[in-house]
């Protein structure tokens, strides 16, 4: 099903960037790193369609574009619908012999707002129809581009402009929606989660998602220093801590069969290496209120939710 593609850091560094320098993302923007790495995984001609969101805004400020591949911007809700259209058009063009390439890959790109909330019906429909494309969700856990409003991807306890921590509420009161599990429930051939610190894992998964016949979904964790009110230099470190604390475990589901990826498997086999969530929370200003006496108990609640989800995942992977 998948090719045995092996690569070294040097080979990846030598590959030309398809997401170019000069984009106007904030300093320390992890989604930009994610896009650079994913675009290193393409195997040939590729078309990218991008829902509205940070990465669309920063990469296409008129008249500049940061894309070295055909790229089309679409509205917030229909990245997946657009990708289905592109894929269908390619199919018919190929049938008519107007495309000579063996394969032209389609990547749909959206943030957490464009996936969890606004884009989910288009996404659900596109994968149900079985279009062959890779959907990449870069999850920075709020609507960062419009001013840090909470989304379905915002975790419990995070302060955003529409769930502000103060005297009344301790940030967002609801849990993060398990979007990748929702995609597995669609019975599509490939679903995976990835984090940019584990770059080899991320690139491998992106390539698998491109290669697989049928829809693939890749959920990538992407820290945002602006919205998380964290140090720009710590973006990649946060993407490592999220995995080490099991807040964002790495796994893939091939034809619905869950399996842990190496960075998380290590933690499953040696639970003493698992870090407490406080280490991850304390680096971020959006969780600052959790370290005041009033809301201190909530860190325990976050630990409990995280452990519960981790145990559930271990059961799915048959590791308990």
């Amino acid at each position: 099903m998948f090719s045995e593609w092996k690569f070294t850091a040097k080979e990846i560094a030598e590959k030309p960037d398809l997401f170019l320098s000069g984009h106007r993302a904030c300093a320390g923007c992890a989604p930009a790193t994610v896009l650079r790495l994913i675009m290193k995984a393409v195997r040939g001609p590729t078309i990218v369609t991008n829902a509205t969101g940070c990465m669309e805004v920063v990469s296409s400020i008129y008249p500049y574009t940061s894309w070295a591949v055909p790229w089309i911007h679409t509205a917030f809700e229909n990245a997946a619908a657009n990708a289905s259209g592109i894929e269908s058009a390619l199919k018919i063009l190929k049938k008519k012999g107007k495309i000579k390439h063996e394969h032209v890959d389609v990547i749909a790109l959206a943030g957490d707002g464009g996936t969890y909330d606004i884009g989910i019906q288009a996404l659900s429909g596109a994968v149900e129809r079985g279009h062959d494309f890779l959907y990449v969700l870069y999850d920075n856990e709020a609507y960062m581009n419009t001013g840090i409003q909470r989304s379905g991807g915002t975790p419990f306890g995070a302060s955003t402009t529409t769930s502000p921590a103060g005297t009344v509420i301790p940030g967002k009161l609801q849990n993060k929606k398990p979007i990748a599990d929702i995609m597995v429930a669609h019975e599509i051939p490939y679903v995976a989660t990835a984090s940019p610190f584990y770059w080899r894992d991320l690139i491998t998964k992106a390539r698998k998602g491109i290669e697989v016949d049928g829809p693939a979904f890749l959920h990538v964790f992407a820290p945002c220093p602006r919205g998380w009110r964290s140090d720009p230099a710590k973006s990649i470190e946060l993407s490592r801590l999220a995995v080490e604390t099991c807040i964002f475990p790495l796994w893939e589901a091939i034809n619905g069969e869950y399996q842990l990826s190496t960075p998380s498997k290590v933690l499953a086999l040696a639970p003493q290496k698992k870090k407490p969530v406080r280490e991850y929370l304390k680096l971020q200003g959006r969780f600052r209120h959790l370290f005041t006496p009033k809301f201190e108990k909530l860190t325990e609640e976050i630990q409990r939710i995280t452990d519960e989800r981790w145990q559930r995942l271990l059961r799915k992977c048959g590791m308990t």
């Binding site: 000069g22 984009h23 500049y64 574009t65």
Partner: peptide, 14 residues
């Protein structure tokens, strides 16, 4: 968008 962003230098942000 017809111009490559490598013509837009962001180095002066730092």
């Amino acid at each position: 968008c017809w111009k490559s962003s490598i013509q837009f230098l962001t180095g002066d942000w730092k």
